[in-house]
């Protein structure tokens, strides 16, 4: 019984950590891309790259700096520290050279915004079923 409980606990932990590591990069389905390079993903989220290859403006959505989903996405997918992104945004905003991403409160809101905004990009940690949002890979 004890062993069973231990195994059960490990499986739950394993499941939980898989879920954490499985944030996916998502775009509005109008964007005709299957994947982006790591450099491109970093350039988009740090707000240096302002448009898609076809010239359409990119709208970047993020969750707050303190959100676990944001922190895990930044670390595991962009392979950056969250404070690096924050510094880049602050430099753009307060020097007037650029803008920061639009910050949303919940994943649900992220889902809806990416679905309804042409050229939008964001991330989700949950499975989703919406034709207007597409997960793309980072190479």
């Amino acid at each position: 019984m004890f062993r069973f409980r231990k195994t059960f606990l490990y499986s739950v932990l394993l499941l939980f950590s898989c879920q954490l590591a499985s944030q996916s990069l998502v775009v509005n389905s109008g964007t005709q891309l299957e994947s982006v390079t790591l450099n491109a993903a970093r350039a988009i989220f740090s707000m240096r790259l302002k448009q898609w290859p076809d010239g359409f403006p990119i709208t970047v959505y993020v969750l707050s700096d303190t959100s676990e989903i944001h922190r895990d996405f930044t670390r595991n997918k962009l392979l950056m520290f969250p404070h690096q992104l924050r510094r880049s945004w602050d430099r753009y905003v307060y020097s007037g050279m650029g803008i920061a991403p639009i910050e949303l409160k919940t994943e649900q809101e992220m889902m809806e915004k990416v679905a309804s905004t042409p050229g939008a990009i964001g991330y989700l940690s949950k499975e989703f079923k919406d034709d207007r949002v597409r997960a793309i890979t980072i190479q």
């Binding site: 302002k50 905003v93 050279m97 803008i99």
Partner: peptide, 11 residues
């Protein structure tokens, strides 16, 4: 401060 980006290339 305020910034206005009417198109993605102009701010």
């Amino acid at each position: 401060g305020v910034s206005w980006r009417p198109v993605s290339k102009l701010q």
